[in-house]
Simulated scan of single mutants.
Amino acid sequence: MRYRLTFVSGLAVGYVLGARAGRERYEQLRKAVRRIAENPAVRNAGEAAALSGRQAAAKAADAVQDRLPSPVSDRVRTVRDYRARAGSDWGAEAH
């Protein structure tokens, strides 16, 4: 699924950048992409993917924490502490 999404995204970007259809077609595409992005099902899927990615990254960091050089380990700990104090996950803010 990831490869399909990447391909479709690349195709869309390539079309927009290489199209000679003009500004009107570009605006139509932009509105369509915005409608898709604002779809609650798409937003929920994106948030679920982001959450699972953060969980996987946390597991990976925990698994290799003792093998990391001290400066890297300290930086990971600092970022985790900052995010915990901020009470905010990346991408979770309403725009």
Rank of each mutant, 00 (worst) to 15 (best):
R2A: 03
Y3I: 05
L5M: 08
L5K: 11
T6Y: 09
T6N: 08
F7D: 08
V8Y: 04
S9A: 06
S9E: 09
L11C: 06
L11W: 06
L11A: 13
A12C: 07
V13I: 15
V13K: 15
G14T: 02
Y15A: 11
V16N: 02
G18M: 10
G18T: 01
G18D: 04
A19S: 15
R20L: 07
A21I: 05
A21H: 06
G22A: 07
G22V: 04
E24A: 14
R25I: 08
R25K: 12
R25H: 10
Y26L: 14
E27M: 10
Q28H: 13
Q28L: 09
L29C: 13
R30F: 10
R30T: 10
K31W: 06
K31L: 11
A32C: 02
V33M: 12
V33K: 07
R34A: 14
R34W: 11
I36L: 15
E38D: 14
E38T: 03
N39Q: 12
N39K: 01
N39R: 09
A41F: 09
A41M: 10
V42R: 03
R43C: 07
N44P: 02
N44G: 15
N44K: 15
N44D: 15
A45T: 13
G46T: 10
G46V: 06
G46R: 12
E47M: 14
E47N: 12
E47S: 12
A48W: 09
A48F: 02
A48P: 02
A49P: 04
L51M: 13
S52H: 10
S52G: 03
S52T: 14
G53P: 00
G53V: 05
G53Y: 11
R54P: 01
R54K: 05
A57C: 00
A58Q: 12
A58G: 08
K59G: 01
A60M: 05
A60E: 04
A61E: 06
D62N: 07
A63S: 06
A63P: 00
A63R: 09
A63E: 08
V64I: 09
V64M: 01
Q65L: 11
Q65T: 02
D66N: 09
D66R: 04
D66W: 00
L68T: 08
P69K: 09
P69A: 10
P69V: 08
P71I: 04
P71L: 05
V72M: 09
V72D: 06
S73N: 12
S73P: 01
S73G: 13
S73V: 06
D74F: 00
R75A: 10
R75G: 00
V76C: 01
V76T: 01
V76D: 00
V79I: 15
V79Q: 08
R80A: 09
D81T: 11
Y82M: 02
R85T: 03
R85F: 00
S88W: 00
W90L: 13
G91V: 03
A92H: 12
E93K: 13
H95G: 15
H95I: 11
